[in-house]
């Protein structure tokens, strides 16, 4: 299958390893990965902060860049959620019927990584080997915008060597929330403190998620406290082999 990678600007710039892992994983499963190099940002930060004009321009750009791509994978729950959940509203706000049609057609072609693997490629055991104690934070937008359910956990359970431990109160937000983390730093870090407490209670070496923005926040807190617990994107665990 030919799969187009929507890397997200955040992963592209700050977490390239996640993109590399996504490519390696999909190629190992026998698929062809393409990367439309014209892509920049999906507009999530602008949209969620209230800058809908700027977001609309980025939405139009995204629609143009991915117009001919049949299957698009995104290793970020919140950016995939932006395209599927918010793009229709951006088009509606802009009063642009053609854009509305285009984003409606686009939405059904965009998959978050675990959705692509489990729903589209119908695979749970991706042949990964990861001999570490891991706990998984499901992230709000994967859970509530995309409704991926337990797909990431099903993928992780099939990884050989993994010691997967349940995270208490896992559905609770970690407190990142994009610009929320800097606009309301005190509340954000109070939420983070509880998330970190639950992560440390698992005695996991690794806290994983399908969104590097949440992981940067959780990992930033874990690093500040010198806990030794690392954050690793789901794609990187699934790409790992013996």
């Amino acid at each position: 299958m030919r799969i187009s990678l929507f890397i997200t600007c955040f992963n592209d710039t700050l977490f390239p390893r996640t993109g590399q892992a996504t490519v390696e994983l999909l190629e190992r499963l026998g698929h062809e990965v393409t990367f439309p190099e014209e892509q920049t940002c999906c507009g999530q930060m602008h949209f969620n902060t209230g800058y809908s004009d700027e977001a609309a321009a980025l939405v139009r750009r995204f629609v143009r860049v991915f117009a001919d791509e049949e299957i698009i994978v995104c290793p970020s729950g919140s950016c995939a959620g932006m395209v599927r959940d918010a793009y229709p509203r951006v088009a509606e706000q802009a009063g642009d019927d053609q854009l509305a049609n285009e984003v409606a057609a686009l939405g059904s072609r965009v998959f978050e990584l675990s959705e692509l693997l489990v729903d589209k490629l119908e695979v749970e055991d991706v042949g990964a080997y990861y001999p570490h104690r891991v706990t998984y934070h499901p992230t709000c937008h994967s859970l509530r915008l995309l409704r991926v359910g337990d797909k990431p956990l099903r993928l992780l359970r099939a990884v050989r060597g993994i010691d997967l431990v349940e995270l208490e109160e896992s559905r609770e937000c970690c407190g990142f929330g994009g610009t929320f983390a800097v606009k309301n730093p005190d509340v954000s870090t109070a939420m983070l403190a509880d998330k970190i407490r639950h992560v440390l209670d698992t005695r996991a070496e690794v806290c994983s998620a399908a969104d590097n923005s949440c992981l940067m926040h959780i990992g930033g807190g874990l690093a500040r406290l010198r806990t030794g617990t690392r954050t690793v994107h789901l794609a990187e665990i699934l790409a790992a082999t013996e």
Partner: peptide, 23 residues
């Protein structure tokens, strides 16, 4: 506003190579 971030969290180092450069 970055100091609001670093009050309680470390920031990751910017990698030497972007994904697209690797690609």
């Amino acid at each position: 506003p970055l100091s609001a971030w670093t009050g309680a969290r470390d920031l990751p180092e910017v990698p030497t190579q972007t994904f697209r450069e690797w690609w």
